[in-house]
Design a protein around this nucleic acid. Structure first.
Lengths: 190, 190
DNA sequence: TGCAGTTCAGGACAAATGTCCTTTTTAGTC
DNA sequence: GACTAAAAAGGACATTTGTCCTGAACTGCA
């Protein structure tokens, strides 16, 4: 169950074997169904999760319920509403399972404990934040200010697995276009 | 000249007076004209800068020269091509002065020196990265998947100073629309 | 003050995208 | 295998946005 996380933490080469072991104990496994929420926009996020199986989407939604997806996460990635989790503020976004998921969760309290006992966790978190920033910038630099067809072709090229895996409506939201426009782009690509 | 940076560093409450003093010495003042580049896309960024006076834009540009602006920075903010500066990789974006600027620059080598001598600089950098991530997410959560007029009204409301200060073409690029569309939005807002 | 370069507003038309809806396809369940 | 729900495709039309262009307003500097 925790084998993937164990391997992930080991591969970072920042923790001793004992540290990895101690760290694993701080995570609790949970299975959730497709459609369940890890966090709801406006609520304080009290968990970060390592995804063992499945995938999630992060998004904001307006009063009319339109979803604005800004990121997906899958196996062997962490997911949380970063600001909300660390600063205990209402979350600006929701995180929802787009597939049945198996997660390893950790509460802020347990994470604080890890940080006190194992200083290297500080490095790990720094790196996660950095990667997250780089990912957001990469998205903006590549997709922002591009017409729909180009964005679709780009996603096909840069993230074919994502295109295959998420449903059309979610991919469209991520690309900042409507489902109808995505269909047209697909059709023209044939 | 360095008074603003001194005040900025002091206000963080992370450095002793001596640390602040030592830190200031690592920064070199430079004046640049509107239009000059701090970094060019594709080159390795060898400076981070604290903006004393003026403003800059960060953007990617495609072969046709279209600018895709993803962020602005002004007085009392740091600016750099983060990944390029820290990992010595080609920068995915350019940073260019949109006004005459007075900057305080620091090279990666000098920053490393600061990090060795003053551990609190680690905290400062972490915080800068965090703020950067939060800013990008905030943009995406608020502006992504919104029609042009709404984005313009939102920027008017959330960042009126920015709207006043940057030229229309740059604001349009930042909002992901054309200058013509921005003009229409302005007209309808009257 | 006048001139040149830059920035901004807006007309006319074309193209892209969105809305609303129906049909087809797919996936899951008993 | 049949039934149901979910997802995807696509038609018809409205709206938004973009392109190309011109003229007005503004800015900096001689």
């Amino acid at each position: 169950m925790k084998a993937h996380l164990q391997q992930y933490l080991t591969s970072l080469a920042l923790l001793s074997e004992a540290d990895v072991h101690y760290s694993l104990a701080a995570f609790s496994p949970i299975s959730i169904k497709k459609g369940n929420f890890l966090v709801r926009q406006g609520e304080v996020c009290d968990q970060a999760a390592f995804i063992v199986i499945g995938g999630v989407k992060s998004f904001s939604s307006d009063k009319t319920g339109n979803e604005n997806i800004i990121c997906f996460r899958f196996e062997n990635e962490f997911t949380t509403s970063f600001e909300s989790y660390f600063f205990r503020r209402p979350s600006p976004k929701s995180i929802q399972a787009i597939e049945a998921c198996v997660l390893l969760r950790i509460t802020p309290a347990r994470l604080r404990n890890l940080l006190e006992r194992i200083p290297a966790w500080d490095i790990i978190l720094q790196e996660l934040v950095r990667q997250e920033l780089i990912a957001r910038e990469k998205y903006l630099l590549a997709y922002h200010n591009k017409p729909a067809r180009e964005k679709y072709l780009l996603s096909l090229q840069q993230a074919p697995d994502l295109v295959r895996r998420v449903r059309a409506a979610d991919l469209a939201s991520y690309l900042g276009i409507t489902e109808r426009t995505l269909t047209r782009a697909k059709q023209e690509a044939r």
